[in-house]
Amino acid sequence: MRAFDFVSAESADQAISLLSEHGPNVIVLAGGTDILVDLKHAKHDPDVVVDITRAEDLKGIEVNDGGLRIGALVTHTQIMDDPYIRENFPALVHAAHTIGAVQTRNLGTLGGNLVTCVPSMDSGPALMALEAEVTVAGPDGTRRMGLEEFFVGPRKTVLEHNEVLLDVIIPRKNLGKPADFLKFGLRKGQALALVNAASALWVGEGNTFKDVKISLGAVAPTVIRAAAAEDFLEGREITPENMAEAGRLAVEDAKPIDDFRASASYRRDLIAVLTKRTLDNAYRLAQGG
């Protein structure tokens, strides 16, 4: 680790001005679960670290006219403990629960997980399946976008050096939408996902798939939507066969890699299985079970 300057922001606006002032070789400290490790191993060599942990306007979980708003600084533990989320979005609770271990979840933030933008992030898929949008703030104001647009590549988002992620919003139309998230890692805690999958759906007339959204993690440069699988299901009857076919189609939407953690071929097997299972679980949830 090399020496750096440390400044602290009390609000998002102050964070933006500090980032503009000290940039471009600056990094933001939120939960610190990633960057403290990186700093120690000198993967980052910033001139200035901007601490945003005291920015109150980046905190809080609330339901407003726009939908469910989760501040970027909300920790994974807070998501797991929030009564509204527990009641309405068990998939988000599952996703938060699979991250790291208790200590990591107590410190790590939702915003941090999204901004770090590793393909195997556990927060992305369930939010993407629920069509979550993010608010990005910079010197020229704010902009809203879907996660598909926000994620650019491995460890790369649209954020400029002087921008911060304000919050994540699940649109009002999706409040209470049945959704499920499954992570497949090789250990229950402190494991990286080999594949992550999430599905969200409404049950349409005649027991059909309606507005079904499927998202996958760790199988492409960023978290992705499984468009072919979604298109196939839309309007079709909800049957195990159709779910299995969607699983097969989801494999075609993905580009998994071979590495020492798992082969691409095994990851493809998992995509099919997990996609089907998340659809099945989301449907059960819709049935009240």
């Binding site: 250990r187 229950k188 805690g189 402190q190 494991a191 990286l192 953690r261």
Partner: peptide, 28 residues
């Protein structure tokens, strides 16, 4: 179920850390 030394084709160890050398955690 899980623990193994994994070597690259250069003969270097691929997983020299507890993230990828997976000893079980309590919940396993």
């Amino acid at each position: 179920l899980n623990e193994e030394y994994i070597y690259s084709d250069k003969g270097t160890m691929e997983n020299p850390g507890f993230l990828d050398y997976r000893v079980p955690v309590a919940s396993d």
